[in-house]
């Protein structure tokens, strides 16, 4: 469980998120939604300590993470940024970088590290690529490799910034299934996601943000029924029942 208390953060002394207090419960999938520029990524980065908050505190199991060293933080919290360079590296070596927080000098992986990497490759079903350079992979395959790296990092909390953006529908669904798997392993997954349907159907909790503040943070059904999604995105939501399929679907149109 990770809790933000009155957290204000941003870049170059401009506050992007303002006085946010919320709790990400253990073993839940939480989707953060909101318009472009509303502070979703900043919220994730601050909670993952990629940037330091200007004020407020971040508590992991009631202990502040702001006094931890970088490596200590990396053993409990992982963060997958949205925009990444595509480094020149083999799949296996990239996933092994997930073990970096656990490596002492001279940075030689132990058997445990190797087992964790093999497990991660197995879970993401990417063993067949393991000696390929990630530049040879498609966007979807590459995303799976990065998630394998996060899995090898073996943290209690996983932050994913837009893990499905730019992917084809098949890979989007695959990644969302992986997210469900992470939940089954007892991890807390917090992700920024633009596809409202995925957010409402895959998450346990939805956090709707606007202008650096949390508008509503609740179960998907409650967030949907509050009507605030429609107001903030300026759209019309229609709940549709998919025939022969026991799930809901939201048809989104402009107002």
């Amino acid at each position: 469980m990770i809790r933000l208390e009155n957290v204000t953060a941003g870049y170059m002394d401009i506050n992007i998120i303002k006085n946010i207090s919320l709790t990400f419960e253990k073993g839940k999938i939480i989707s953060v939604i909101g318009k472009n520029g509303c502070g979703k990524t900043t919220l994730l980065k601050t909670a993952a300590r990629i940037i330091e908050p200007y004020s407020g505190d971040i508590l992991l199991n009631e202990e502040s993470i702001l006094n931890m060293t970088n490596k200590e933080t990396a053993k409990v919290i992982s963060y997958l940024p949205q925009n990444r360079d595509i480094p020149n590296i083999k799949v296996y070596d990239l996933v092994m970088h997930g073990r970096f927080p656990y490596l002492g000098f001279p940075r030689i992986p132990t058997n445990e590290d190797k087992i964790k990497v093999e497990e991660a490759l197995h879970i993401l079903e990417i063993e067949k690529y393991k000696s390929k350079n990630i530049r040879e992979l498609s966007g979807g395959e590459r995303q799976k490799v990065y998630i394998a790296m996060v899995l090898a990092q073996d943290t209690e909390i996983v932050f994913l910034d837009e893990p499905t953006t730019y992917l084809d529908i098949n890979h989007q669904l695959e990644i969302l299934e992986v997210v469900k798997n992470l939940k089954k392993m007892g991890k807390t997954v917090v992700m920024v996601i633009h596809d409202l349907n995925s957010a409402l159907t895959y998450s346990d909790m939805v956090c709707l943000m606007d202008r650096g503040e949390v508008v509503v943070y609740d179960k998907p059904q409650v967030v949907y029924e509050s009507g605030k999604i429609e107001r903030i995105f300026n759209i019309k939501c229609h709940e549709v029942c998919v025939p022969f399929h026991n799930s809901k679907y939201f048809l989104l149109t402009l107002k």
Binding site: K45, A48, I50, T69, N70, K71, E72, T73, A74, K75, I77, S78, Y79, L80, P81, R84, D85, P87, I89, D93, L94, H97, G98, F100, P101, L103, F105, P106, R107, Q153
Partner: peptide, 23 residues
């Protein structure tokens, strides 16, 4: 040479290497 592995991690980009615990 001693810090060469850290140089490998750094080449993943600032945010990724920071989230892996690199200062």
């Amino acid at each position: 040479l001693i810090f060469s592995y850290d140089l490998n991690v750094l080449s993943l980009g600032d945010q990724t290497s920071k989230s892996l615990g690199l200062n």
